[in-house]
């Protein structure tokens, strides 16, 4: 086998195993049910999408950064912490694969799982299409944004997962980081801190936030800068994971 096909087949082997792991554990089904219940609750009860009389899913996607705040770290928390707890990390990393292949393979599996959960929200799309004439291009665009947003949180969660062998610790750290990524650009918060610090600092901090970058997708604007923003969080998260694992093995 040549280099590239080995690279891809190693990643795919890992991804397959991880996906198998998700779907054989009851936690995965609990997660999907929770996710669907909560999206439904936020969309129909709190977002009161039916009373608004608009044929759009703006209020469905509005809550995604908050929903993902708890749910995505819950997917990612075990990715490396479990390997460390069970000792299987030693088995995995003495196989003829690179650490990077293992990291990417595991991340892709978790992302596919998240994508599957997101896909299962399709009844809400059918509902608005039944009730009115929404712009399905906008909806698709928002789904892409939501998927990228979830991927970013997931990369951060896999990073915190590599830091510890305790899943709960991993969950808490990644929730805190993701919360920062929301609040840094959340209008009520930015309006508040504007009173104390210069506008330029508010803007710099806010530029780290996922909220303004997700906003574009929600409105149906597919901006390359926003895509690059989310992809760079993912690359950063996975790169940090590889550094953490390298340090772990070196035993510092």
């Amino acid at each position: 086998m040549n280099g590239l096909s080995t690279f891809i087949s190693n990643i795919w082997t890992i991804t397959k195993r991880e996906l198998g792991g998700y779907f054989t554990s009851p936690v995965a089904y609990v997660f999907i049910v929770m996710f669907l219940l909560l999206t439904g609750l936020f969309t129909f009860m709190i977002g009161s999408i039916l009373e608004r009389g608009e044929a759009s899913l703006f209020w469905f996607f509005y809550w995604h950064p908050w929903l993902y705040l708890i749910l995505v770290p819950a997917i990612g928390m075990g990715v490396w912490a479990e390997e460390r707890r069970l000792g299987t990390i030693e088995l995995l990393l003495t196989m003829p694969i690179t650490t990077w292949q293992a990291i990417v393979g595991k991340f892709i599996a978790a992302w596919i799982f998240l994508g599957a959960a997101l896909f299962l929200t399709f009844p809400v799309v059918l509902t608005v299409n039944y009730l009115g004439n929404p712009d399905n291009g906008v909806i698709l665009c928002a789904y892409i944004g939501s998927f990228l947003l979830g991927g970013s949180y997931l990369a951060i969660s896999t990073m915190t997962s590599a830091m510890t062998r305790n899943q709960v610790v991993s969950l808490i750290i990644s929730v805190v980081i993701c919360l920062f990524l929301i609040l840094a650009g959340f209008p009520p918060i930015t309006d508040l801190i504007q009173n104390y610090v210069p506008q330029i600092i508010v803007d710099i901090v806010a530029s780290f936030s996922v909220i303004p970058h997700f906003d574009g997708f929600k409105r149906g604007i597919l901006d390359l800068r926003d895509i690059i923003f989310f992809l760079s969080i993912i690359v950063f998260g996975l790169f940090a994971t590889s550094l953490i694992i390298r340090n772990l093995r070196a035993g510092h």
């Binding site: 792991g21 069970l86 000792g87 299987t88 088995l91």
Partner: peptide
């Protein structure tokens, strides 16, 4: 490896 680790869910 020591303690014979294996993926418990498989």
């Amino acid at each position: 490896p020591e303690n014979a680790p294996a993926y418990a869910d498989m």
